[in-house]
Amino acid sequence: MIGFMFRRLLWMAVTLWVVFTISFFLMRSVPGGPFDRERALEPEIKKNIEKRYNLDKPLIQQYFIELGNVCRGDLGYSFRLGDYTVNQVIAEGLPISVALGVLALIFATSLGLIAGVTSAVFRGTWTDVTLMLIATLGIALPNFVIAGICIILFVFKLPIFPAGGWGDFNQLLLPAFCLGAPYAAYVARIARTSMLDVLSQDHIRTARAKGVGPVRVVIVHALRGALLPVVSFLGPAVAGILTGSLVVEQIFAIPGLGSHFVQAALQRDYTLAMGLVLLYTVLLYVMNWIVDLSYAVLDPRVELE
């Protein structure tokens, strides 16, 4: 187990290095630099700025300087948000994205489970068909479409939520719902399948034969077993939700990592974009790692090699 963790850590370092190298050269190979703007800079002044950010040095030298800095955990100053270091930007943005993600996850699991279990219990009825139709739609519709529909419904037609922004709980609900909706749909489908599986098993029949009420059978006896596949889906989903909030954050003007990422890429903010790419790599890696570990904990048949 220890050996497994250690190996994973090593692989993470290698992956980070590869991601760093690829992003570094990709970013610099697109035409146009971070200091191009409508007003051409005086050559002397441009040289000065470039010197400050080491852009006057040969590419390979820039690469090693930056690699060294990144290894020390120093991601440097953001090119575009000149008053902040990349670490500060991440420190401000990450909690916001996490808060949004957690709420989205709550929506995803609670809505998904309720829908999945209900349609399993009422299998073959109109309820089942309707719920699964909604779930399929939820998977098929990209979240910016869902966001648009939600804004029309709950901001303009029925004004109960603000149109965007950040700072109070009310502003969080709508984006969290839109972010969580596709995941809720997945959860619903997974929960339905596993619930059907469990409901047809012997111990449920036994419980029913002993006269246990239908609600108790579903919630106490069946749900536990049906939860396992859902839990194993949630691991990668967390990573997906944290990294997948780009669009939703833009639409609802939420100052999380997603909006930073989009703007950093558009504005050639090399340092910030690099910092976020590396952060996302770590997030994905850690989430997968936790999922692997939790498999071992949940299911004794899995051995970590």
Binding site: R80, L81, G82, D83, P95, V98, A99, L100, G101, V102, L103, W166, G167, D168, F169, L172, Q263
Partner: peptide
């Protein structure tokens, strides 16, 4: 997570609010 998300609420409303269509690069 929820507690975290609630931090930063309770901001009193400003007298005047406007939209600056992009994040400022600096205030220097």
């Amino acid at each position: 997570g929820i507690a975290w998300s609630l931090v930063g609420s309770d901001l009193p409303k400003a007298d005047f609010t406007f939209i600056n269509p992009s994040e400022v690069k600096s205030v220097d």
